[in-house]
């Protein structure tokens, strides 16, 4: 596990080997910039095992990197997305 420091990286990075290469769905979404709106987004891809933990006291707020996306919103241009742990469902369970 590596620790990122500074205001631009207020998280701890890590790697979960058990998740590497696992197929997963992400029921994701995010707020829309400077509006009161948000949008739901759905992704399917492969977990790299990389994660980021944000601290809010108690258990960490963990985010996994979902890559090699085979399903993503039509307008989503990236090849990977960070998904909050609870938004993920492993497909091979």
């Amino acid at each position: 596990m590596t620790t990122e420091q500074g205001p631009d990286a207020p998280f701890v990075s890590g790697f979960n080997a058990d998740y590497r290469g696992r197929r997963a769905e992400c029921e994701g979404g995010a707020p829309i910039a400077e509006t009161k709106y948000a949008g739901r987004q759905f992704f399917v891809g492969t977990l790299t095992g990389d994660y980021r933990d944000f601290n809010f006291g108690g258990s960490p707020w963990r985010w996994y990197l979902l890559a090699e996306l085979t399903q993503k919103p039509e307008a989503y241009s990236r090849d990977a997305v960070w998904c909050e742990e609870e938004s993920l469902t492993l497909m091979d369970n």
């Binding site: 029921e27 707020p31 006291g57 258990s59 909050e84 742990e85 609870e86």
Partner: peptide
Amino acid sequence: LGSPKFLLERAHAQGMMVWGLVG
């Protein structure tokens, strides 16, 4: 939108209720 799981322990420790909106 997202899951509030990561904040539940702290919220409950100080007597707050946590609600989640799901689709």
